[in-house]
Design a protein around this nucleic acid. Structure first.
Lengths: 145, 145
DNA sequence: CTGACTGCAAATAGTTTGCATGACG
DNA sequence: CGTCATGCAAACTATTTGCAGTCAG
């Protein structure tokens, strides 16, 4: 288990949740994966080392982690959601290739000014945002013109 | 049928698609609705004046309109997609209330600079983006503290 | 020990597809 | 009149729920 996954494990326990082998493996899978992962993808990945795990457990664990704010959801334009580890201090957004699905993180956008203005204008209590750019990555541009 | 819906109807015909009563009603529903609408919501709305329409037709029409770039998808944080009319010159984003689901449009954010930088850094050919702010609207803040 | 967690199976929701009939242009 | 669109039903995919057995703490 790598550093980030270990930290999460501690956090889980602090909040009174149990740390089961299944959760451990799922955490590893999400923490290791540099890509975004759909529930099904996590399932596949996890089944290799824990063959009789259920997809249900993936869903339940994802729900738990989302509730704790440890992972975040990505809407890759299409039908299904995928999930990424949210590193605490590292607020980031995504750049998604519409051909191959690659996700690149970036942090360079500061939206606090816009957020403030919106909040003033609308009276909303804004607590988060989602920013995704869509396009085609370099390799997809060369392979399929 | 209001102005915008009429314009779309013309556009449809220009591209060789037929203008059926069903499509007309669906267009009206989306154009009139100031809210975002889920496929199911469109279905409900449309059934009032065209009682034997099928949900399937909604999906097919939505697909068509998305393909033509006339409507855009919103991911309201939760499970399902909803759709809004995309007024041609009016590039906008959404501010969504996580309690009641109200969607407020705004246009004040200029991301072209960020987009350019990202494009330079990553080699992506960026063709669009999705920006959503999440929060609680004024009335939800007062009703449920 | 005990309550929380898991896995199975079945239920539910959302979306898509196949096909015969019907209607736009 | 031919072709594209519709509506029904059924298939599919993604996700959730009920329940009895199992395990972490």
């Amino acid at each position: 288990m790598n550093f980030t996954a270990k930290k999460i494990a501690v956090l889980l326990r602090q909040r009174g949740y149990k740390l089961t082998p299944q959760r451990r493996v799922i955490l590893d899978a999400i923490a290791d994966g540099h890509d975004h992962l759909t529930p099904a993808a996590i399932y596949e990945k996890v089944k290799r080392e824990h063959s009789n795990i259920g997809l249900v457990t993936i869903y339940r664990t994802i729900g738990l982690l989302t509730e704790l704010g440890l992972i975040c959801e990505v809407h890759s334009g299409g039908n299904c959601r995928s999930y990424l580890l949210r590193r605490p201090s590292e607020h980031h957004h995504h750049l998604i290739c519409s051909d191959c699905g690659t996700v690149v993180d970036f942090t360079s956008c500061d939206l606090s000014e816009v957020e403030q203005k919106l909040s003033d204008d609308t009276g909303f209590d804004i607590n988060g945002h989602l920013l995704e750019f869509l396009g085609r990555c370099r390799s997809c541009q060369t392979t399929t013109p």
